[in-house]
């Protein structure tokens, strides 16, 4: 279980954090890996802060506890800054990826966070430009894969395409793929 990766997602209800955690898990399935994806449900309301989790490993995953010391934290919503302690449990080797117009260094100063690796991307702008809706999960997955290639990027791209093709439409699927690729390119580390 040495290659086990644990990811925590922060978002607001309706933004697709749970979908993001599941999408990555489904991509892992196509790579023949093992995975868990689970939400941290309280009262489910649109706009309320929510958390979701993904575990990915090349061997079977047995534990069923929540993730308290994640390898990576992904924040889908810039307005969670100052509301939720999303650096909680992040250790020195950890990775923090936030949807924000701030640069990684500005974010570090804002959070007083000097550990691990910090990545930022203005995913809201990417989503509004391309998907025309403020749903940031697919661009944030793209940015995550740049920081941590936990599953193959092409496999994830196909997973996004298939999921939105089946459930919504071809146009929405292609927009999500484009946003995914753009965020992959634009994400900054600092």
């Amino acid at each position: 279980m040495s290659d086990l990766v644990e990811i925590r997602w922060h978002g607001r209800g309706g933004q697709g954090a749970v979908t993001a955690s599941e999408l990555l898990a489904e991509a892992a399935l196509h790579e023949g890996k093992y995975f868990q994806a689970f939400p941290d449900y309280g009262p489910e309301r649109m706009g309320a802060p929510i958390r979701a989790y993904t575990r990915i490993s090349s061997s079977p995953i047995r534990q069923h506890n929540q993730i308290t010391e994640p390898d990576a934290v992904v924040v889908l919503d810039p307005t969670l800054l100052g509301v939720v302690d999303f650096a909680e449990g992040l250790e020195d080797g950890g990775l923090l990826l936030v949807n924000t117009p701030l640069s990684p260094n500005e974010l570090r100063r804002e959070l007083g966070f000097d550990k691990g690796r910090v990545f930022t991307i203005n995913a809201t702008r990417v989503a509004l430009d391309i998907i025309k809706r403020n749903i940031t999960n697919t661009p944030m997955i793209g940015a995550l894969l740049r920081a941590l290639e936990v599953v193959n990027r092409d496999v994830v791209r196909e997973e996004i395409r298939n999921r939105f093709n089946t459930r919504v439409s071809k146009e929405v699927a292609e927009a999500n793929v484009e946003a995914f690729d753009r965020a992959y390119t634009e994400v900054r580390e600092g």
Binding site: S21, E22, A25, E26, A28, L29, K33, Y34, F35, Q36, A37, F38, P39, Y41, I61, H64
Partner: peptide
């Protein structure tokens, strides 16, 4: 099956 842990937990 344990609620949420398995009920809403996606696994292979």
């Amino acid at each position: 099956l344990d609620g949420f842990i398995l009920g809403h937990g996606v696994e292979r």
